[in-house]
């Protein structure tokens, strides 16, 4: 079967990203190479279509023993490129049938790529993930909200049939209060973060499993490289004001190559819809 061209990143011509040419690509059999056009370079390596072709890819990504090492290898290569020069990091498994098709991309999106490279120059992405423990939130709402606790008392005193309906009402009330609580916390944090960095991109509320009581939101922050330490310290100091029993934890990840800020059009991340 033939090979395709796996795209990792776009950089300006003569950038230091070319230091990595010749290093092993995502398939270590094939070296990293560059394709130049329109004063831009595309960093690519060949990959066998037997693994990255349409059907093969669709099947492979369902297999975590395949997906995980590949995703980490992709990130590893992109990270190294980003550590040397300004790049536009490309998402996982973006593959072209020919080198000409990659060059064509450089030509057709030339202006957008150049603008984006200027925006990303010297900047990294920091991830602020807010995890909510829904079980803790639920019990804290039950204790603190007077309407909810009155309703809970009433349920204890009513007949089973009525109690069932009241129970439903109680659940609805609690989950609406919980949504309001989560929204207000996320908004507060996003506002604060936007004062600390160049720009923020807020993901949708997602839940990694049906049965576990966790919901999370990730806010990606574009931060100047020389302000990363400051950014981390600010977040850490600020997090101390939140008591752990609030059912909320904040996780800091990064620095990441600016994956989230590499959209060609400035659309928000609201399209991210995980399985809830």
């Amino acid at each position: 079967m033939d090979n395709g061209y796996y795209l990792y990143a776009i950089a300006k011509e003569h950038s230091k990203a070319i230091d990595f040419l010749g290093c092993p690509g995502i398939d270590p059999q094939y070296p990293i190479m560059s394709l130049t056009h329109a004063e831009l370079i595309a960093i690519v390596s060949q990959v066998p279509l037997s693994q990255f072709g349409k059907e093969a890819l669709a099947a492979n990504v369902q297999d975590f023993t395949w997906l995980e090492p590949q995703a980490r290898a992709h990130d590893g290569i992109v990270r190294q490129l980003a550590s040397k020069s300004t790049i536009i990091p490309i998402r996982f498994a973006t593959v072209y049938y020919s080198a000409d098709n990659v060059r064509q991309l450089l030509v057709s999106e030339k202006d957008q790529f150049k603008q984006l490279l200027d925006k990303l120059d010297g900047r990294w992405e920091m991830g602020v993930t807010i995890d909510f423990d829904k079980e803790k939130l639920r019990s804290s709402i039950k204790q603190s909200d007077s309407q909810v606790s009155e309703l809970a008392d009433k349920i204890e005193r009513t007949k089973p049939g009525t109690a069932y309906l009241l129970q439903k009402k109680l659940e609805t009330q609690i989950s609406s209060l919980m949504d309001t609580y989560i929204d207000s916390k996320v908004q507060l944090i996003a506002d604060r973060l936007s004062q600390l960095c160049i720009s923020v991109s807020q993901g949708a509320l997602a839940s990694p499993g049906n049965e576990i009581n966790l919901a999370y939101v990730t806010i990606a922050c574009l931060v100047d490289q020389n302000k990363i330490d400051l950014f981390q310290d600010e977040i850490l100091d600020w997090g101390k004001t939140y008591p752990p029993e609030a059912g909320m934890t904040i996780r800091l990840t990064g620095p990441w190559p600016p994956y989230t800020f590499s959209s060609l059009n400035e659309t928000n991340r609201e399209t991210v819809s995980h399985v809830n």
């Binding site: 990255f52 498994a93 973006t94 989230t260 959209s263 059009n265």
Partner: peptide, 14 residues
Amino acid sequence: RLLYKGVVVRGDLT
């Protein structure tokens, strides 16, 4: 981050 569905660059295969 790596699977974000927003349009970054559309490959022949994605």
